[in-house]
Design a protein around this nucleic acid. Sequence first.
RNA 1: GCGAGAGUGGCGAAACUGGCAGACGCACCAGACUUAGGAUCUGGCGCCGAAAGGCUUGGGGGUUCGAGUCCCCCCUCUCGCACCA
Length: 835
Amino acid sequence: MTDFVPATTVGEPSIGYDPAAVERKWQARWEASGTNAPKLDGAPRPYYALMMFPYPSAEGLHVGNLFAFTGCDIHGRFQRLRGHTVFEPFGYDAFGIHSENYAIRLGIHPAELIPRNIENFRRQVQRNGLMIDWSHELATTDPAYYKWTQWVFLQLHKRGLAYKKKGAVNWCPFDKTVLANEQVIGGACERCGTMVEQRFLEQWFFRITAYAERLLKNLDHLDWSESTKTAQRNWIGRSDGAEILFVVQDLMEYAGSATASAGQSGEVTATAMEIRVFTTRPDTLFGATYLVLSPEHPLVQELPGDDQRDEVEAYVARAAKQDLVTRKTNRDKTGVFTGAYATNPASGEPIPIWVADYVLMEYGTGAIMAVPGHDERDHEFAKKYDLPILQVVAPTPNTVDVREAAFVETDNCHLIDSGHFSGLSVEEGKAAIVSELASHHAGNAVVNYRLHDWCISRQRYWGPPIPILYCDTCGVVPVPEAQLPVELPNIEDFTPDDSGVSPLARHEEWYLTTCPNCARTARRETDVSDTFLDSAWYFLRYPSTDRNDVAFDASLTKHWLPVTSYIGGNEHAVLHLLYSRFITMVLHDAGLLSFEEPFTRFRAHGLIVKEGAKMSKTKGNVVNPDQYIEEWGADAFRTYLMFLGPYEEGGDFRDKGISGVRRFLDRLWLSVHDARTDGDIDDTVRRKLHQTIRKVGDDIPRLGYNTAIAAMMEYMNTMRSGERRPHVDEVRPLVQMVSPFAPHIAEELWETLGHTRSVFDSGWPDYDPALVVEDTFEMPVQVNGKRRAVITISKQVDETAALAAALAEPTVAKFVTGTPKKIVFVPGRLLNIVV
RNA sequence: GCGAGAGUGGCGAAACUGGCAGACGCACCAGACUUAGGAUCUGGCGCCGAAAGGCUUGGGGGUUCGAGUCCCCCCUCUCGCACCA
């Protein structure tokens, strides 16, 4: 309970504002009357206001969560005031390694821990007064939900978009578990500090790369934060280049190994070994002085002669042992010569073939042509191993020495020492060389994407089992849809072990089952799927949570989706949003959805810091929302969160600051209770009111919450200035404007004002455009750009009259000596006299 | 290194297509009402200066009658990506 006893200044004492009581009252009423749970079927003007659902941690709701939710709620409540039927659902992203690790640390089973966390989250969210429709709540850990997550997997599998292949993972030999990249710090396991290794495991992938171009192109037409779109573009990373074939020389020398792999006699030279490389700089082909293969490249086994074999193998083994993070972070170039040579198709020169871990197998072809003269990485490597460096691109005049550093500029540069291509610009050179290669079947233009296929396998316990069976007779068999969900069994030993497979693989009683095709014994897939899959479709589920027979109801989906407004953190700018788009496109292609982009509008909110520093448990500066709501009330807390900075940039939470918005709400309370009903409303107040309605109505949709609140405070100051007692007609619209921010007090005051229906059904106040414009204004008068006076003058005044009025001011006249050289008059703005 | 964003009073921050820099709030100062006030109300509050006036949006140049806003160079911070050929 609060110990706050508001005081009054004006005669009659009003009942003090007691947020705890008001908030309790209205939360109970909303629930009882179902105000926040609209009838979805055929609802007029549907508006789907989605907030990113949280991972329900054991620590409870973070202010960051509340900041995000509140901003979304305000948007939703505003749209409701504008007459939309607003659907604002809530749920929990409760599967995943994060929950699992936490459960392991506490020694509590996640199946026990998570429901407790969820309950706590729900309590906190409810306390904050969000307009959530609780009748559509969901949790990804609920079998009634993940049944459909598994169904989504099957839809992809059906369409050939889910496949299995070996992929590299981080492996901690001490904890005996697979680690995500974020769990590897400086090459060591974040929990035990043991150096992490690379392991190759069979894993399930989604072929998101097949959608790369579409995912990229559609971005152009989405109403999303520009920064988010840029992040996605970079992540997809389209690059235009060419693949070029290099023929390995002196094949006969390696006939032994080549025949062994070909499996039979003689004609080895006919099937000459070729190396395909990807490059974005085909124009530099004449400068390619060596080739580099990634250690994982298949030809690495075949190329080395007897002299080099041991060294190459040792190098490859060393690279394999290294974890993925260190390998990608370690900038020191290392490599070994294979002993083999290839022919540069342009110059005809033999060039050595090396193996080095700075070339990655997962990008392009896993092999590159090294052009040390024009690539910094190749230059560094060539220096270290004393390989030739040639210059084939030059600016005019050529002042470049490529032995010193790679020359990477391309603008206004031309090719040199490149046969008959010399003299062409870089752009022309690219095209000409590629087309010449193409005519010899030695290369062609190719587009590459940085985007990889999405690995969805997790060798973990806390996730939905991947709905696949392995049968000795039938092979890989998808679980029939009718048999979903494949329930996650409640096992005690859910901690990962050294096998490199999921804990589920220890439970024969679970994974042994019958093949639906041949009725023989089959094994279940024991990996679970990535949490990102759970969240890649949850927005489709919300409207249809009552349906147990389908993932989403066709007509509800048509009516409510795509999501009208989605607000969330930019930390999900790439993965979550990209995966959601991908899954939506796939379901669209499968004829299950009429749209292919899930979120019509997306805005990223900012980050909250505390007194200029990031909040963290170790610093002990984490803001506990409960404590603040206790002391100040949810309305003040919400309003303060929105006031402390621009929503899309975040802000700085300072303990002292909240008193300002609380004072504002106190004054609002007072103004309503003390409002007079007699007499007229004042002209200046009326004008200010209409300006405020316009400003707040403009600011809220663009998430300018801090300035909207400032405008209302300003109006409050005007309304009450000089201990003025406001008129009830001046206060009423303010209650409506405040309501999205401080819904409980607004409802209470709305009732006090004599209304019987919710303020959220009262509509948004209108403003009169005629009242917004001022007829006089304070015109600054400058002399030589320096302000010398401000005169109050009609907005319609013309230059002559303005000048005359200005020169009448002594402070102006004093600086105007002689005739003005120039008069700059901006009607309705200012006057500048240049002398 | 690459990409995105940001640097404005003691502090959090405002500022439309270039047009009074500092709205709104915190803190602070003075006053009023008070037995009292960590309540409320009124007024003040960028810096220098007694004033006139001068200076001021990370630093340096430029365009303009006029620049926080546009252009060039540099510095710092935050976030994301990170040997992507």
